[in-house]
Amino acid sequence: MSAIDLDALRKLASLARVRLEDDELRRLAPEFERILEAFGTLARADLGTPAEAPELPAHARADEPLPSLGRDALLAGAPQADEGFFVVPKTIGSAR
């Protein structure tokens, strides 16, 4: 059912934006296999009922502006900020 090989795991890690070293991948692959095999009871379960989202309490407050945290407070925890902005590596016109 699972067939999670190293390449598939590498793809998942890339989708999840998590860099994994080769030794981590090799350790993770059999663990993943074992977990998915054990959880196969779920995938194989014949439930008959259609999937439905759980009913959770949810509400939205009135669409009115309220006092909020200042920009400086929000930027204070960032690894790099400049002139009121988060700084990230260049994304336009970069090599990738």
């Binding site: 890690a13 890339s14 934006r17 998590v18 860099r19 929000l74 925890g77 960032a78 690894p79 790099q80 988060f86 990230v88 590596p89 260049k90 994304t91 970069s94 090599a95 990738r96």
Partner: peptide
Amino acid sequence: VRYGPRVDGDGSLEGMQA
């Protein structure tokens, strides 16, 4: 980007995040 320490990686945005 918004919290905690950053590791630069290969210098790209995706590389930094990963």
